[in-house]
Design a protein around this nucleic acid. Structure first.
Length: 573
RNA sequence: UGGGGAAUAGUGUAAUGGCAGCACGACUGACUCUGAAUCAUUUAGUCGAGGUUCGAAUCCUCGUUCCCCAGCCA
């Protein structure tokens, strides 16, 4: 088994790391490892990019190599500075460092142009006058060979003159292209005289109007890698068909030639992972923006309350290979809870309040009780919480007529209030419609702190907030954005909005928070005890608190209820 | 119907001719001042058919299924 010593545990190597390790042994690249993460700034990064980021930066780190952050900004029609800024922020937030190596493909435009001249001089490229449609017609089909362009055999001088004229803007958009002279009968369509440059009079977000020709991916990408001295150029599976062309260009120019390696992109259940689709969600206003907490974008996950550690651990856990697969969202959530459980301070918050009057508790008395901040982390310490005569508990924690598996509060039943007292429900108060409006309970003064001196067993512990000290807050509950577990199954033309989960966002107001939350700041993460992990939204202000539910706690009771509901439904039908 | 890839429990991923393992999920139980966490238990897999071999997920042959490619997008 191939392994690398990583801290104290040996880790199995995926197929990419195996190649890198093998190259290290044979000295193929003088024991250098240099990767790059090359996003196009035409959208926000998502969890699928995180897989690529962790692969590229992770390999560099593990093999004492380097990883560049490089923007592949060769198409001014789609790219914007806003995207550049967000990408930089997101990669940084994930915890990776490219040191001084922040690069842009657009900085290489002159060198690429010079290489273009060189290829023409070698007789391996030509200027073609065929328009887009004619080019397509000449390409042939999957089963039939293409036809050579009538401009294919122009002289080197003529090609040089025309290419230079293209550069200075002598032609209209689409009028001419520079093509590689390869093989119009090649079974791989990418090798049938691919276009290297198009005429495009567009303003670029970095180079402005300096250029009116722009290089295409196949031509540009290998050059970018070569110029930066990349050793392993890692990309996704759909570029496998392009590798012969990647190799052809670099061989033709006889320059540094990295190895392209392809891996399968990430798919997640209930998740759309194409930038095009995500852009549609944003543009149609079906979400609040790229950072909507329901979006699989890095900025969306951050706002939702994900931690970088959770995402990185997820990327490590899913592995890397060449087969298409769809990872269960439950695995992402598992990695999330695993990290949040260790790191999140506990607080008490009541989302759907039910008022309780402790009838035998003195009117003006206040108890200062001690609550542990994080049982998983002794260093997190403790805090004081105030108990008084009127408190709120979760409405779902009381049932007037409880089923047998429900062991929370019910008439005549005794439960524990977390860190406080044992209380017994003595009276249910209702309005005219029969709705429960409040409960009367008695407390046992001997149980201060939550312990019964006689050692009697209490099955349920409830979270609560003291009414006199409670803070009001808005809480946003999220569910899958998509109704369909495999949204990839959608047809291209299918209406996106028809596949959205109508219950993906529920906003609750007038939730009751313990007072320590008054000092919260955006992006602070908490566990609301017994409910889940929550994160302060950037919309939150001291006078108007707003929290996002990141993910619920695992909840067997909710599962039982769901099963019973389903059983009732299937009995009906 | 051309070319390039990929198939291992429900899901993801190891095993590179030598005991099919791990994680998630699901199930059952223990514990519990969070119905969380933790611990224990169970469930369940090599795409198919041949062949080589003492021995095949792995090698060979023939199939099957799925993904990618006909942008002057990346």
């Amino acid at each position: 088994m191939t392994t690398v010593e990583n801290e104290d545990t040996p880790t199995k190597l995926d197929f990419v790391r195996s190649i890198v390790a093998e190259d290290g042994k044979t000295g193929k690249w003088d024991c250098r490892v240099h990767t790059r993460f090359p996003p196009e700034p035409n959208g926000y990064l998502h969890i699928g990019h995180a897989k690529s980021i962790c692969l590229n930066f992770g390999i560099a780190e593990e093999f004492q190599g380097k990883c560049n952050l490089r923007f592949d900004d060769t198409n001014p029609a789609k790219e914007e500075q806003e995207y550049v800024d967000s990408i930089i922020e997101d990669v940084k937030w994930l915890g990776w460092d490219w040191e001084e190596r922040l690069y842009f493909a657009s900085s290489y435009f002159q060198q690429m142009y010079d290489y273009g001249l060189e290829l023409i001089k070698k007789g391996k490229a030509y200027v073609c006058d065929l328009g887009p449609e004619e080019t397509r017609n000449h390409r042939g089909t999957l089963t039939e060979p293409g036809r050579e362009s009538p401009y294919r055999n122009r002289s080197v001088e003529e090609n040089l003159d025309l290419f230079k004229a293209m550069k200075i803007g002598a032609f209209a958009d689409g009028a001419k292209t520079l093509k590689a002279k390869i093989d119009m009968a090649h079974p791989n369509l990418n090798m049938r005289d691919p276009v290297m440059y198009r005429v495009l009079h567009a303003s670029h977000h970095r180079t402005g109007d300096d250029w009116c020709i722009y290089p295409l991916y196949d031509w540009a990408h290998g050059l970018e890698d070569s110029l930066e001295g990349i050793t392993h150029s890692i990309c996704t599976l759909e570029f496998e068909n392009h590798r012969p062309l990647y190799d052809w260009f670099l061989d033709a120019l006889e320059v540094h030639h990295p190895q392209q390696i392809e891996f399968a992109r990430l798919n997640l259940t209930y998740t759309l992972m194409s930038k095009r689709q995500l852009l549609r969600l944003v543009e149609k206003g079906l979400v609040r923006g790229w950072d909507d907490p329901r979006m699989p974008t890095i900025s969306g996950l951050r706002r939702r309350g994900y931690s970088p550690a959770a995402i990185r651990n997820f990327c490590k856990t899913i592995g890397v290979n060449k087969s298409n697969s769809t990872v269960d969202m439950a695995l992402l959530e598992h990695c999330l809870r695993q990290d949040l459980n260790k790191t999140s301070p506990r607080v008490m918050a009541v989302l759907n309040p039910l008022k309780i009057v402790i009838t035998n508790y003195p009117m003006s008395q206040v108890d200062e009780l001690e609550a542990i901040n994080n049982p998983e982390d002794p260093d997190a310490g403790s805090r004081k919480i105030s108990f008084s005569r009127v408190i709120y508990i979760e409405r779902e924690d009381f049932m007037e007529d409880p089923p047998k598996r429900f062991f929370r509060l019910a008439p005549g039943r005794e439960v524990r209030l977390r860190y406080a007292y044992l209380i017994t429900c003595t009276k249910v108060v209702k309005d005219e419609d029969g709705q429960v409006t409040e409960l009367h309970c008695s407390y046992d003064p001997e149980t201060r702190g939550g312990n019964a001196p006689d050692g009697r067993r209490i099955k349920a512990t409830l979270h609560w907030v003291s009414a006199a000290y409670a803070l009001d807050a808005e809480v946003r509950l999220y569910d899958h954005l998509l109704a369909n577990e495999n949204p990839g199954d959608l047809d291209e033309g299918e209406d996106l909005s028809a596949n959205l989960n109508p219950d993906s966002l529920k906003v609750i107001t007038h939730c009751k928070m313990e007072p320590s939350l008054g000092e919260t700041e955006p992006f602070c993460r908490y566990q609301f005890e017994r409910l889940g992990y929550f994160c302060t939204d950037p919309d939150s202000t001291p006078s108007r608190l707003v929290f996002n539910r990141t993910v619920t706690l695992r909840d067997p009771w909710a599962k039982v209820q769901k099963q019973e509901q389903n059983q009732k439904q299937s009995q009906k039908s």
